[in-house]
Design a protein around this nucleic acid. Sequence first.
RNA 1: GGCCCCAUCGUCUAGAGGCCAAGGACAUCGCCCUCUCACGGCGAAAACCCGGGUUCGAAUCCCGGUGGGGUCACCA
Length: 481
Amino acid sequence: GMLHVGGVRTALFNWLFARKNGGVFVVRIEDTDFERSTEESVEQLKRSLRWIGLEWDEGPEVGGPHAPYRQSERMELYRRAAQKLLDSGAAYRDFATPEELAGFREEARAAGRQPIYTGGEFREMDPEEARKRVEAGDPYTVRFRTPREGQTVVEDMIRGPVTFDNANLEDFVLMRSTDTPTYNFAAVVDDAEMEISHVIRGDDHLSNTPRQILLYRALSRELPAFAHVPQVLGQDRKKLSKRHGAASVEDFAARGYLPEALFNYLALLGAGYAADEEIFTPEELAERFRIDRVSGNPAVFDESKLLAINQVYLRRKSPEELALIAAPLLVESGAVPEEELQSDMPRLTKIMELLRERIGCTTEIPAAVGYFYGGRLDYDPEEFEKQFGKDFVQDSFPELYQRLSSLPEWTEEAIEGCVRGLAAEKEKGARHLIHPLRFATTGRTVSAGLFETMQLLGRERCLLRIEDVLEKMKQLSKPVS
RNA sequence: GGCCCCAUCGUCUAGAGGCCAAGGACAUCGCCCUCUCACGGCGAAAACCCGGGUUCGAAUCCCGGUGGGGUCACCA
């Protein structure tokens, strides 16, 4: 399904680990659950991975020595492995119906016991009888014959040894009655078959690991090294979800975050890097990555920190790059007609240079840039009154307009000289003209420096807007002093 | 509830027995710069969950409690 940020972070750690150690990063599609797995979700996953810059060395589309990399295309493998376990006695057939199982669990719960299913009568059923029932067409699952005693130890690269009592593990299902494998089984068969040396995954899998270790042993396969990285939590310390505003890679892309910023932030989150520096390229991150430094503590996702990092990356982009990012956003949002943009990319480049320091994420661009295009503006009436209600402003604006329109050249310096000159003659601070003028020409109370903004706006557009304001001023109620 | 993991400023973390009256970053709050906003500069506030041990000495080791997280399917 959607690639959750917790999931990308895990993928990122795998990528970093593989890069650092000269390994191979493999992507495998685990689609044995036909209900949940759709073509679209697979595409979405690949898109998200690529967007953030995680290219895989082996996997779907790129291929590799252990293709195919999609479990739905490897069914024979799992069936053979299941048969092998059946033959060796490591697994058995369970003919219990879903209703019977539900009944068993309910009963156990009611009696205050843990519902650990160990196959009931089927665990020790005579193979001959089992065969008869198979021939009769009775549905069954294949279950693992979990040892009832002893312990299984997971040697985790992050946490050290983690011990589980086998008695707490039930006889889990290997093959469903539909003759398809469950996650635990397929994952082990594939990891063994694909020669996976290091399994780095979310810590929601830690409790699956003893089962998988038992399976490796039953299949006489060598164990990979395991590392379980914690989940990513929301501010309320609950698992991050759409409830928190954004949770998937696509959400963050849509919110205007740069892939390299998300990459950088996620790689830092709980990874135990030294805290003196925080902006790193993927290569630098890989160079410094140490799986044993990853924190076992679940990390809280902090969007304000992501934003800060995003700003750094935005500022590092050249005005040309920013213009290229901005153009489609401006067109999509309807802020600027496409023809107008295409005919004058150099101007957009200059605009972006001016605004670069003031943008936190790319979604802010249309609002920040919009007033550089088009003619007359809509003014907030309340703010309009505030800006132009004063006598001084009303008195000096017509003259300001005259002087601006007769300026020999429309440069930042000329405009500044003009405005400051008039203010000085009137023995007023320049800010008394600057603020209303900013509002008149941009329709906003905040912008980049007024004079450079006006220069980029162009004389024609500025004068038009001032004329418009002069006109609207007349309708203002009696000036208050 | 059983089992498992985890525990330093609001958040991410540095810290691996003395260098820590705990450092950095983001966020917050001041001040400076200034035409507003942002950038930048300077500064402030802010944490070792609690209780027992071990030790000359503990944020660092051990035990217990508490708290948070995960997991208990014919889902992955």
